[in-house]
Simulated assay, not measured.
Amino acid sequence: MATTTRPALVKGSRASRSTIALKMLMAVSGLIFIGFVLTHMYGNLKAFGGHDSFNEYAHHIREFGEPILPHEGALWIIRVALIVSLVVHVACAVALWRRAAKARSVKYVVKKSKASSLSSRTMRWGGITLLVFIVWHLLNFTIGKVNVQGGATDDPYNLMVDSFDVWWLTLLYLVAMVALGMHLHHGVFSAAQTLGLTNNDKARRNAKAAGALLAVVIAGGFSLVPIFVLAGVITK
């Protein structure tokens, strides 16, 4: 009996440990992104200070770390760290999804739990939406610098205003922010749970509250600039 069950137990133990490792990597990479989006949101809100305030911020982040680092050195370190975090986050998510799908050897109808939130049930599709948005966002403002109105692309503030002055671009951006908010709402709690920070009822409530707060602050903060541009409050 022992000779037949032991290999299975060892295999199951290894699978469990690797699943925990994948969740840990997702949690850590997710926290890195939370730090980034908070900083990025702060930079975006510089638009309320006008053209010079916004462009000075964009210029200073390229000089950050000089003269110890070369021009844009710190920025490239951040970019590489974010790319690695993104690859790790997506790869772990795909691996965990495949494991969950493989575990269902028999198809069955899953009754939605009343305890599960909309955010938790839409994590996968929200993640895909954000991934597509990130690609477009980089093409729009960083890599390709696409100005859909045909204007200049060498001025960060003017490019931002020209982009969000187009209603459908602002709409797409706001949809992405809804996806971001929902992803953060459940993701923060999930990360806290993975890191062992939800060991009691009070800790779980705090983790859920932190997720809700970050979702509102970050998604709401990002949404302010495009809304005010489209409303004509922020102009060139």
Score class of each variant (00 low, 15 high):
149 Q>G: 11
149 Q>K: 15
149 Q>L: 14
150 G>D: 12
150 G>L: 14
150 G>H: 12
150 G>A: 11
150 G>T: 13
151 G>N: 05
151 G>D: 03
152 A>F: 05
152 A>N: 09
152 A>V: 13
152 A>C: 01
153 T>C: 10
153 T>E: 05
154 D>S: 14
154 D>W: 03
154 D>F: 00
154 D>G: 02
154 D>K: 04
155 D>E: 12
155 D>A: 06
155 D>H: 05
156 P>L: 02
156 P>K: 01
156 P>M: 02
156 P>T: 02
157 Y>Q: 01
157 Y>F: 15
157 Y>W: 02
157 Y>D: 03
157 Y>R: 00
157 Y>N: 00
158 N>Y: 03
158 N>T: 14
158 N>D: 12
158 N>M: 08
159 L>S: 04
159 L>D: 04
159 L>C: 06
159 L>G: 04
160 M>I: 05
160 M>S: 08
160 M>N: 09
160 M>Y: 10
161 V>K: 03
161 V>M: 03
162 D>V: 00
162 D>K: 01
162 D>A: 10
162 D>G: 02
163 S>E: 11
163 S>R: 11
163 S>M: 13
164 F>C: 06
164 F>S: 03
164 F>N: 03
164 F>T: 05
164 F>H: 14
165 D>G: 15
165 D>P: 00
165 D>H: 13
165 D>V: 01
166 V>Y: 07
166 V>P: 04
166 V>N: 09
166 V>Q: 10
167 W>L: 13
167 W>S: 10
167 W>D: 00
167 W>K: 08
167 W>C: 01
167 W>R: 11
167 W>I: 09
167 W>E: 07
168 W>Q: 02
168 W>A: 00
169 L>I: 15
170 T>Q: 12
170 T>P: 01
170 T>H: 08
170 T>E: 11
171 L>V: 15
171 L>F: 15
171 L>E: 08
171 L>I: 15
171 L>Y: 14
171 L>N: 04
171 L>R: 06
172 L>R: 08
172 L>W: 13
172 L>P: 00
172 L>D: 05
173 Y>M: 10
173 Y>W: 11
173 Y>K: 07
174 L>Y: 09
174 L>Q: 12
175 V>N: 01
175 V>Y: 05
175 V>T: 06
175 V>P: 01
176 A>T: 09
176 A>Q: 06
176 A>M: 04
176 A>H: 08
176 A>F: 05
176 A>G: 09
176 A>I: 07
176 A>S: 14
176 A>L: 04
176 A>N: 05
177 M>P: 02
177 M>Q: 14
177 M>E: 08
177 M>W: 03
178 V>E: 05
178 V>F: 14
178 V>I: 15
178 V>D: 04
178 V>C: 10
178 V>R: 06
179 A>T: 03
179 A>C: 06
179 A>W: 02
179 A>V: 03
180 L>R: 06
180 L>I: 10
180 L>A: 15
180 L>S: 13
181 G>R: 10
181 G>I: 06
181 G>D: 08
181 G>S: 10
182 M>A: 14
182 M>T: 12
182 M>R: 04
182 M>E: 07
182 M>C: 09
183 H>G: 09
183 H>L: 11
183 H>P: 07
183 H>A: 14
183 H>F: 13
183 H>D: 12
183 H>R: 11
